[in-house]
Design a protein around this nucleic acid. Structure first.
Length: 196
DNA sequence: CTTACGATTCCC
DNA sequence: GGAATCGTAAGG
């Protein structure tokens, strides 16, 4: 399992948000690992993006956004957590929100943590808060290096898969609602919800 | 210290 | 439609 290189994330945020679709998130647990394919993302473009946390500038919470790309930016939202990946070079605080995963391995643990029916696989990771609950991602993973296979959390390549990508406005925000910075894999049943 | 506020989810 | 829920940031 070779993780994606840091150079993959050292590009424009919207490019990273698009290119990371189809890649696989790995979460190492005590005895097993959880796997999930990234099927939906959103790009938050930095200090000039009214909807981005970095719009308010550098704070303790957004500090990691200003560091090297390829690290995890996790934040608390209401009763849940959200996972982002830092993009662009140092001092350029763009990030990609992971909004949905297609569960690949570790179903039992995900079902248990989410408290859903055993057959309801669609509802395990089809939302930014849901996937963090299923994968048990929290503030302990703030700053985690996702390009290092020794990390508890990292991202690997997914060979030879042809995917079609759709862009839509971002979801659940009140500013810059007309920016098409949401990226989803067309016809994938594990995305959160359509909104055009 | 106090207050306001969410890149959400679930239930009515 | 409305509530749960808690870390963060800003202001006194």
């Amino acid at each position: 399992m070779i993780p994606l290189k840091r150079s993959f994330f050292d590009r424009k945020t919207d490019i990273v948000a698009r290119e990371i679709l189809g890649k696989i998130i790995v979460k190492k647990e005590n005895n097993i690992s959880l796997f999930g394919k990234i099927v939906e993302t959103e790009a938050y473009l930095g200090e000039d993006d009214p909807a981005a946390h970095a719009f308010a500038g550098r704070t303790k919470r957004t500090e990691v956004l200003y560091g090297l790309p390829g690290h995890a930016y996790v934040f608390r939202l209401r009763a849940y957590y959200c996972l982002n990946i830092v993009a662009e070079s140092e001092n350029s605080p763009g990030c990609v929100l992971i909004r949905a995963l297609e569960p690949l391995e570790g179903f039992d643990l995900m079902v248990k943590r989410r408290g859903v029916d055993k057959k309801d696989l669609v509802n395990l990771c089809n939302g930014p808060g849901k996937l963090c609950q299923a994968f048990n991602i929290n503030l302990n993973h703030y700053g985690c290096d996702l390009t290092n296979s020794d990390s508890e959390l990292f991202i690997i390549e997914n060979e030879n898969e042809r995917i079609e990508i759709i862009t839509t406005p971002r979801i659940g925000i009140s500013k810059a609602t007309d920016w098409n910075q949401r990226y989803i894999i067309k016809s994938n049943p594990y995305i959160s919800k359509y909104k055009f």
